[in-house]
Amino acid sequence: MQRTLPAGLFGAFVALAGLSHQRLEGLPVMVEKAKADNSGTAPRAPSMPMARDPAAAVAEEYKAARRKGTRQALELFIARHGNDPLAEQARAKLKRLPG
């Protein structure tokens, strides 16, 4: 006796079978493997830029806030970096700004 699968269940199986060959970006994994096989080498992982020094990034942000010279810019810096030593300088500058 031959049984048939309902169309919806068959479609689900087809979709699930296809997921193992798809990456999130939409390029089939098999294409990437074929490219690697054709070139003779495996694809290289994308290189990541070096991480910035967090202290340098905070110092740059402080300089930008000072250049802007507004209450809003200094308050934003303090809100983002309240524990940084430069926040004390920002607080002092904020106190010197007119009302």
Score class of each variant (00 low, 15 high):
Met1Tyr: 08
Gln2Ser: 09
Gln2Thr: 03
Leu5Asn: 06
Leu5His: 04
Leu5Lys: 00
Pro6Asp: 11
Ala7His: 13
Ala7Asp: 15
Gly8Gln: 02
Leu9Ala: 14
Phe10Arg: 04
Phe10Trp: 03
Phe10Pro: 00
Phe10Tyr: 01
Gly11Trp: 07
Gly11Lys: 10
Ala12Arg: 14
Ala12Phe: 04
Phe13Trp: 08
Val14Arg: 10
Val14Asn: 00
Val14Ile: 05
Ala15Thr: 07
Ala15Lys: 05
Ala15Met: 11
Ala15Glu: 14
Leu16Ser: 05
Ala17Thr: 07
Ala17Ser: 14
Ala17Phe: 03
Ala17Gly: 09
Gly18Cys: 10
Gly18Asp: 09
Gly18His: 02
Gly18Val: 06
Gly18Gln: 11
Leu19Ile: 14
Leu19Pro: 02
Ser20Glu: 12
His21Lys: 05
Gln22Cys: 14
Gln22Ile: 10
Gln22His: 05
Gln22Met: 08
Arg23Lys: 07
Leu24Glu: 09
Leu24Gln: 06
Glu25Asn: 14
Glu25His: 07
Gly26Asp: 02
Gly26Arg: 03
Leu27Asp: 15
Val29Gly: 15
Val31Pro: 01
Val31Met: 12
Glu32Phe: 09
Glu32Val: 09
Glu32Lys: 13
Glu32Asp: 12
Ala34Thr: 00
Ala34Val: 12
Lys35Gly: 09
Lys35Gln: 10
Ala36Tyr: 08
Asp37Ile: 01
Asp37Trp: 15
Asn38Trp: 12
Asn38Ala: 10
Asn38Ile: 13
Ser39Ile: 14
Thr41Pro: 01
Thr41Gly: 05
Ala42Ser: 10
Pro43Leu: 15
Ala45Glu: 10
Ala45Asn: 11
Ala45Val: 15
Pro46Arg: 13
Pro46Met: 02
Met48Cys: 04
Met48Pro: 02
Pro49Gly: 06
Pro49Ile: 03
Met50Cys: 01
Pro54Gln: 11
Pro54Phe: 05
Pro54Asp: 11
Pro54Asn: 13
Pro54Ala: 13
Pro54Met: 07
Val58Glu: 04
Val58Cys: 13
Val58Ala: 12
Ala59Phe: 06
Glu60Val: 11
Glu61Trp: 01
Glu61Pro: 01
Glu61Phe: 04
Tyr62Glu: 06
Tyr62Ser: 05
Ala64Ile: 13
Ala64His: 04
Ala65Trp: 03
Arg66Ser: 10
Arg66Leu: 08
Lys68Trp: 00
Lys68Gln: 14
Lys68Asp: 14
Gly69Cys: 00
Thr70Ser: 12
Arg71Ile: 02
Arg71Gly: 00
Arg71Val: 05
Arg71Pro: 00
Arg71Cys: 00
Gln72Thr: 07
Leu76Ala: 09
Leu76Lys: 14
Leu76Trp: 07
Phe77Gln: 14
Ile78Ser: 01
Ala79Gly: 09
Ala79Phe: 12
Arg80Trp: 12
Arg80His: 12
His81Ser: 08
His81Met: 05
Gly82Met: 05
Gly82Trp: 10
Asp84Tyr: 04
Pro85Trp: 03
Pro85Arg: 03
Leu86Gly: 07
Leu86Trp: 06
Leu86Thr: 06
Leu86Met: 11
Glu88Tyr: 08
Glu88Trp: 00
Gln89Pro: 03
Gln89Ser: 09
Ala90Trp: 00
Ala90Ile: 09
Ala90Met: 03
Arg91Gln: 04
Arg91Leu: 03
Ala92Cys: 03
Ala92Gln: 14
Leu94Phe: 06
Leu94Asp: 10
Leu94Lys: 07
Leu94His: 08
Lys95Ala: 15
Lys95Asn: 11
Pro98Arg: 02
